[in-house]
C-alpha cells in the first residue's frame, strides 16, 4: 500500500491534550515539519511555556525544557549560550509572552539572541479557563472581562510584532494566521524561514501565529476561524514586520 501521508518525525506520536478545534496541533506540526525539512531536529532544543502548550515537551521529538511562566526566552538564552551550535526555540502563548514575560521577550530580541520564538496569539488565556489576555480584543468577553474588554479601564491589546520590529536586535518578525489552508501554508513558510535564519546565525526571529480558542471563545471550531478573520486580522494585520540585519552601530539611518 502506498503511503500518502505520515507523521513528520519531529512530532511525537503522543495524543495531545488540546481541545477539539484548537489550532495548537496545526502549529505544532508546522514547527515539526520545518525542523525536519531543514534537517535540524537532531540539534534542536525546545522550551515549553506555561499555558495550554505547557506539555509541548511531550509532543516534539527533540530535547525539551519546561520554563516558568513568561521565562522561556531567558531559559532559551541559557541553553543557546551553552550550545551555540544548537537550534533553540520557544513556543509561547499571549499571556506567557506578552504579559508576564514581556521583559524576557523584548530583551531577548534586543540582544539579538539567536533563538526562534513561536508566539501563539489567540487573544485569551486558555489553560486557566479563558481570562482576558494582553491581546484580548476591545469589547471581547472573557471570564475576567465579563462586560467586554473596556479599553478605558483594561487598556488596549498589545501588537507584539509591530513592537518588536522596532528593536534593532530582531532579525525576522512575521505575523501569520492558521485560519485557512492558504494561511497555514504561509505560516509554515514563515516558521521555516525563522529557523533557517537561526541556523545561519542571523539572530532573533519570531513568528506570531493568530490562532483560535473555540472552547474559551464559546464558538464552534468553524465559527472560531471566522471570528479570527473578522475580529483579529483587522487589528493584527498579517505580514512581515522585520526582515533584515540590525543597522550598523553608529551608522546612518
Amino acid at each position: 500500500m502506498k503511503t500518502i501521508f505520515e507523521r513528520t518525525p519531529a512530532l511525537s506520536d503522543a495524543v495531545t491534550h488540546y481541545c477539539p478545534g484548537c489550532t495548537h496541533g496545526i502549529v505544532h506540526r508546522l514547527v515539526a515539519e520545518a525542523l525536519d525539512e531543514l534537517d535540524l531536529t537532531g540539534r534542536t532544543i525546545g522550551v515549553a511555556p506555561v499555558g495550554c502548550a505547557v506539555m509541548a515537551y511531550n509532543y516534539f521529538e527533540c530535547d525539551m525544557v519546561q520554563a516558568a511562566h513568561g521565562r522561556a526566552p531567558a531559559v532559551a538564552t541559557g541553553v543557546k549560550r551553552t550550545h551555540p551550535g544548537s537550534i533553540v526555540f520557544t513556543y509561547q502563548g499571549d499571556g506567557d509572552l506578552a504579559a508576564i514575560g514581556t521583559a524576557e521577550t523584548v530583551h531577548a530580541a534586543a540582544r539579538g539572541e539567536n533563538i526562534t520564538v513561536i508566539f501563539i496569539n489567540n487573544a485569551i488565556y486558555g489553560m486557566t479557563g479563558g481570562q482576558m489576555a494582553p491581546t484580548t480584543m476591545p469589547a471581547q468577553v472573557t471570564q475576567t472581562s465579563p462586560y467586554g474588554r473596556d479599553v478605558s479601564k483594561a487598556g488596549y491589546p498589545l501588537r507584539v510584532s509591530e513592537m518588536l520590529a522596532t528593536v534593532d536586535g530582531a532579525r525576522y518578525i512575521e505575523r501569520v494566521a492558521v485560519n485557512s489552508a492558504a494561511n497555514v501554508k504561509k505560516a509554515k513558510a514563515a516558521i521555516k524561514k525563522a529557523f533557517a535564519n537561526q541556523a545561519a546565525g542571523n539572530g532573533f526571529t519570531l513568528v506570531e501565529v493568530l490562532s483560535t480558542c473555540p472552547t474559551n471563545w464559546g464558538l464552534d471550531p468553524v465559527k472560531a476561524l471566522d471570528w479570527l478573520k473578522d475580529n483579529m486580522m483587522p487589528y493584527y494585520p498579517l505580514g512581515v514586520y522585520k526582515d533584515g540585519a540590525a543597522p550598523e552601530a553608529g551608522g546612518e539611518a
Binding site: I45, A67, A74, V75, T77, G78, V79, T82, A103, R111
Partner: peptide, 26 residues
C-alpha cells in the same frame, strides 16, 4: 566563557536554569 547582564534578577536565574539544563556549570 559567557558573561551576560540580564534584564532582571528573574531573567538571570532563568538563564542559569537554561544553561544548567544544557549541562553547564552556571
Amino acid at each position: 566563557g559567557v558573561y551576560l547582564q540580564a534584564e532582571s534578577e528573574i531573567a538571570a536565574i532563568n538563564m542559569v536554569l537554561g544553561a544548567s539544563a544544557a549541562g553547564a556549570r552556571a
